[in-house]
Design a protein around this nucleic acid. Structure first.
Lengths: 336, 336
DNA sequence: TTGAAAGCGCTAACAG
DNA sequence: CTGTTAGCGCTTTCAA
């Protein structure tokens, strides 16, 4: 598609390209009359600035690169909404890449984004990312970067997370307060910060309330519904006595467990109570509705984008990384 | 962030930039030895090609622009997954914009993407888009463009949709077959192709089975849960006798209605049966589980991306637009 | 097998 | 107030 350039306009008007450029960007040196003529011509010729050329010249693009595990997970989709809204209003565009929970794809994505000379990076690491060396290098070289939700603790970058530790603690304490006796935990992938913190929150709550932490009550699950289903299956066949309550690392796992328990005729919450983490759209719709820890996903995306923009704009004054922690809220419904 | 350039490598190796460029792209003219040296240096200096410069030179970017109403809607999030996967494997990156169902934002997004000289455009129009002139102009000027799901019928561009008419028809016929007597329809925004076709499918099924189409049985709703809730409220207070079955334009509306009906003590499906359209993650989790028309969202995104890529690659041979229609599947569960 | 030079579209000194 | 010129990083003829 052949596009009109500044030179086309200049030729048509019999003036120089630089004048056109200045007129278009409303430079004070240019006369009102010239500006008007240029704008009219630009309009008529359907001129659209070539961002690529502008960016090459500025040695930087107005693009924010985002790397997430999967956009189709409601939590990330909602975060994306927050990010794109903020970016849009600041005149930035968002370039999205999915790692599909794969380390290779993740590094590959980063390379692509770097090649596009993105102004900054927003990343939530895959569940298989253990080596954060490339992120560390990026940060050292001055690339604006903010981790959100799933962070690399070793990297010296800004982060936005929810208070996983406290959220998990409160959820578990709630279960303890309701006099559940055998409270289990379905845990996420071990390398992930969120998994560790939520598990820690569970353990802390147990210990601080004089409850033993039985290793067999901590069931390795994952982050998806299938993981919850599998974990529930395993729990049902291997644990005796069965737990009477389960705090799950997130909603999908809770939902997967929910389905399996229902299938096996286990009553929720009478036989086994269930608590999730996230509060996605399904949580309130199931019956009994899921008690869960609400994460402000949109706000998480919004904050991450704002922090990144701040870094991009005040790039010179290299301040220390900022760590923002958003509050969660325990939403009590009927499943526990 | 200062990045290594081809010139840096050239200087370091005491050769010319063009040789480095050729070596990096594995040009046959360059000796194996030089290639090896260049690659080693590039690696060591952490060289990443400047896509911006490459694109300026090629007068085109390897970016696919996507405009959707809202990423956080599961349906679109899943489509996005399909698009990004295909794009990724073809060496393209995806730039996402949300219109937030707003016409101004939509045109604005298009402008931004055009300015970025995207290789092509994938768009699903907002519910307020009635004027498709800008799309038509884009197509005339040769911009590769594929509409998906929500299309502009007037524009001479390729499209990928699901068979809304047939899906709606089958869903309604199913209801008729189950001997429901007063089958209503909660309709979507009138300007949208999907709304019209689903409504048409409903009406066709009614007429072809000798059922009258009562205007008061067609309730204007929208596309979101709130719309379903409001529509259910209106239905409950204004219709007498009440319908005994409702075919909803999509899952969110069905879910909104579901909640309201439950709240008002109306039994689903005994008093009023409910059918949705989409089959999102909530549908199978509610009780009674939602009978709905499954749309292959991921495939929709995948197909749209593939068609666009095809257009981009065979750009010269300007073929006629392709119109792909994907099959839906009626998923019978307990709500009807 | 390699180098020199031009040019992609735009901006920004510098000059007039 | 406007024009000239150089250059952003890369690819690609054309020469050597």
């Amino acid at each position: 598609m052949r596009q009109t350039t500044i030179i086309d306009i200049a030729k048509k008007l019999g003036i120089s390209p630089s004048t056109v450029s200045r007129a278009l960007s409303d430079h004070p040196d240019i006369s009102q009359e010239t500006k008007a003529r240029v704008r009219a011509a630009a309009d008529e010729m359907d001129y659209r600035p070539n961002t690529i050329a502008q960016n090459l010249q500025k040695k930087q693009s107005q693009i924010i690169g985002v790397v997430v595990p999967q956009v189709k997970h409601y939590f990330f989709a909602e975060i994306m909404a927050g990010i794109t809204d903020v970016a849009y209003h600041a005149g930035y565009t968002v370039m999205i890449c999915q790692s599909n929970e794969d380390f290779e794809q993740e590094t590959n994505n980063i390379d692509v984004l770097i090649s596009h000379r993105v102004a900054g990076l927003l990343v939530s690491v895959s569940s298989k990312t253990t080596d954060c060396g490339h992120f560390q290098r990026l940060v050292r070289r001055g690339m604006p970067l903010v981790f959100f939700d799933r962070i690399c603790e070793k990297v010296d970058a800004s982060t936005v997370v929810v208070d996983d530790l406290e959220g998990a603690f409160r959820a578990t304490e709630y279960l303890i307060g309701k006099e559940y006796q055998r409270i289990a935990h379905m845990a996420g992938p071990p390398f992930l910060s969120i998994s560790r913190l939520r598990r820690q929150g569970y353990e802390n709550a147990m210990r601080q309330n004089g409850r033993p932490v039985h290793p067999e009550w901590i069931i390795q699950a994952g982050l998806n519904e299938e993981d919850g289903t599998a974990a529930a299956e395993a729990m049902l066949s291997h644990l005796n006595p069965l737990p009477d309550a389960v705090f799950c690392v997130n909603d999908p796992v809770a939902l997967g467990a929910f389905v399996k328990l229902k299938e096996k005729g286990v009553n929720v919450p009478a036989d086994i109570a269930l608590v999730g983490f996230t509060d996605g759209p399904v949580a309130s719709m199931i019956d009994p509705a899921l008690t869960t820890v609400r994460q402000p996903a949109y706000l998480l995306g919004k904050s991450a984008a704002e922090m990144l923009l701040d870094q991009i704009i005040h790039r010179e004054s290299r301040k220390n990384p900022v760590h923002k922690v958003l509050k969660t809220e325990l939403i009590v419904r009927q499943s526990a």
